[in-house]
Design a protein around this nucleic acid. Sequence first.
DNA 1: TTTGCGCTTGACAATTTTGTCAAACATAAA
DNA 2: TTTATGTTTGACAAAATTGTCAAGCGCAAA
Lengths: 200, 200
Amino acid sequence: MSIQKKDDVTYELIIKTAKRLLFKEGRFNVTTQEIADAAGINRTLINYYFRSRDALFELVLQNAVEEEEKRREMIVFSNLPIREKLETFIDYYFEQAKKYPYREVYIVTQMNSESICKLNNKDHIKRLTEKFFLELEHEMEKGNIQKMEPIQFVLNFISMLILPVCMRPLLQNSFDLADEGYDNILANRKEVILKSIFKN
Amino acid sequence: MSIQKKDDVTYELIIKTAKRLLFKEGRFNVTTQEIADAAGINRTLINYYFRSRDALFELVLQNAVEEEEKRREMIVFSNLPIREKLETFIDYYFEQAKKYPYREVYIVTQMNSESICKLNNKDHIKRLTEKFFLELEHEMEKGNIQKMEPIQFVLNFISMLILPVCMRPLLQNSFDLADEGYDNILANRKEVILKSIFKN
DNA sequence: TTTGCGCTTGACAATTTTGTCAAACATAAA
DNA sequence: TTTATGTTTGACAAAATTGTCAAGCGCAAA
């Protein structure tokens, strides 16, 4: 968008509000009117700044995907040893998850949209994963991690990290836990995950 | 609904189609027209059999929640040893996930709806989880499972089982995998999970 | 102050989605 | 063949959501 020149506070406010309703409150079929009300602005401004509802949502989605990629790269390119890499990744995830717990879920629900598949630079991904997988295999050789296909290890790790957050309503309800109780459980996840993954 | 008397094939077809679009294809904001088209019926029939869109969706949602509860109870009430219990649960999950991979995700996105919170018989849940948690602690004492809070063990287990399925689009895209490749990975999940959870 | 430019607003139109209803249809019983 | 009951349909109405537009507003520069 090249419309805004001096005052883009409204522009940012709309995006921020849309993200909040989508990624934090999980209201995936929120209307433009609801976004406008939550932002305390006139609904027409959404069309003024973003042309259409779809354009706004597309922007927010792309932004979310880029954040995911950024996180993914971070874990590989840092020169920390494996354990510290994973710890950093966990901290980073929980930090973002506190703000936007449903970001990944929303991305999944929008994955059919073709516009989302263009991003992944395949060569880049290949290099990323291969580098990280080698590090994992090396760590398995050393006996610090149980031997398995690296991709399976990553799936285990990502799963244990993300699912208790993104399915919190279902899980909290299933075990009949109060907010505080579930918060405490989440606060212990980092340690639990690390202990589950590393043998020593 | 007490409307249908002789012919409830249409009634069931509508539910089946709605479930397919919601839980299998993940189109969470599908319209009644789209459901009708997919089912090859007139849209008005949805109102005829279910009164309103909301009523249909509510029915499908309740049904999904009940299936979840059924699965949860199954794992506790069977008199199998822990390992076999978990194995049975894994098999059962994958069997249903092949049909409806997004069922849990949809439930999560609808958790704000008050109607969903009425179901959980709290005493029942308490008894279920306490019984199962005791079994887990016993298994930890025997050294077959790493010691941790039982709830954390369950979270680990559920996470490793569900997330690779319900976030398949995101993960498959992230690692740039073809359908067949990801299918193979999923096929190995059972063994991977069991090896990750049990020490021997 | 006046002018210009971007921002904001309310009213309106267009579109999409949902709900209603009377009539047509199918089929089995009388 | 009628009759009755339940099913299906298309047309219409209602509601909700989105998009457009001209006019008004705020504020800085001339």
